[in-house]
Design a protein around this nucleic acid. Structure first.
Lengths: 204, 204
DNA sequence: AACGTAAGCGGACTATACCCCGCATGGCGG
DNA sequence: CCGCCATGCGGGGTATAGTCCGCTTACGTT
């Protein structure tokens, strides 16, 4: 008989039409978002506008929030690339603390530029497969923390806490109006606050 | 003419029947939650079960998430009392750092005991009046931080970050199954992680 | 005690997230 | 080149969050 594997890596490579539709849906979603704001981006509207069925939209994203998560993933991919292969201090080559600070500042900026998407990507229940629910952000922070050899700290939990301290303020505790009113100033404040937090945590 | 004030303190003291209904709704909600879990706690069901109109339920809580927020508020009230007038280190009388640690551990316990409520209390959009959206948790942390006279730190933002690090991890980054499986062990880990974080941040 | 008014209430109405299941189609073995 | 079948697609169906507006009721005033 053939092999009888217990766990496949990728179970199946995703059919060609499915990939095409996914890309088309994301493009349409981005367009609708730019034109009419997040409230008008409904599942029905996205299906109709893209010329596909409602079922397809749900199959791809699972949830309304899933659309926004996918959009945010796409946006974050650019940052990930700069982190992995860009110039220091964001990219490799700088001391870990500097990279942490740079990463936080960059992410603050990115989130402030996409507050609405990020907020709508939030959802209490997550009926998704629930696996691989470890954001890239958290893994990157964890990796840099490890290089610092902080003694007596649970790196996994510390990374989770710091990730929360980076996302939480924007998504949960800073109200929408506070963001729009203070504009670019809040970016500076949040960036400095992040730097201060990192330097305190990483002090010897 | 009479006084023409620009801003009243409490504009109106809430009518008696309204208060009665609020209490009744919360009691019914708690009961339904205990009986059939959070998914069955719908606005319609709550209205019917409590013998009130749907409009009333929405007037009181504004949002489905609002119900869970109200329930969580009620649960947190007990903690608030112990914080304000209980024995140290949670209550007044202990050094600020000890109080911060004690508070975090207590809150971790409380959130772990009410994970589902907390998760459903989450909601991306907040169509609520949006004022006074500063949780008691955050204000308490901020108050204790001030007593520490950390130099060069933005206390408001640091308090927000620490609050996020306390709530966020549980609500967002620890998946539901991780909580139920690891059980009491995770409470210890999170408590210790919080203590470590606080001690790092508050180091001189 | 009667009245006027503003707050509260009810439940029909709408919009939309999400489910379901029969049909179409892409990709692979013969 | 042809047929198999799993994967993906479609769009109608359901449940429920949230809105609206006319009626009711508590409570301060005369």
């Amino acid at each position: 008989m053939d092999v009888l594997p217990v766990s496949w890596g990728p179970p199946r490579p995703e059919r060609a039409d499915a990939a095409r539709n996914r890309a088309h849906l994301l493009a349409t979603a981005r367009q609708m978002l730019a034109e009419s704001g997040p409230d008008q981006l409904t599942m029905d509207a996205l299906a109709e506008r893209s010329g596909l069925g409602k079922g397809t939209v749900f199959r791809r994203f699972g949830t309304r929030a899933g659309i926004f998560q996918a959009l945010l993933d796409e946006i974050e991919r650019g940052l990930q690339e700069r982190v992995m292969s860009g110039p220091p201090p964001l990219g490799p080559g700088a001391p870990p603390v500097d990279r942490l600070v740079a990463y936080g500042r960059a992410r603050v900026r990115l989130l402030l530029e996409n507050t609405e998407i990020a907020r709508f990507a939030l959802d209490g229940r997550q009926p998704l497969p629930s696996s691989s629910r470890t954001p890239a952000s958290q893994m990157h922070i964890r990796m840099l923390l490890r290089q610092l050899s902080l003694d007596g700290a649970d790196l996994d939990l510390l990374a989770i806490q710091l990730t929360a301290a980076l996302d939480g303020p924007l998504l949960l505790y800073l109200s929408a109006d506070a963001l729009t009113s203070a504009g670019p100033q809040i970016e500076q404040s949040l960036g400095s606050a992040w730097q201060d937090l990192i330097e305190r945590v990483c002090r010897p």
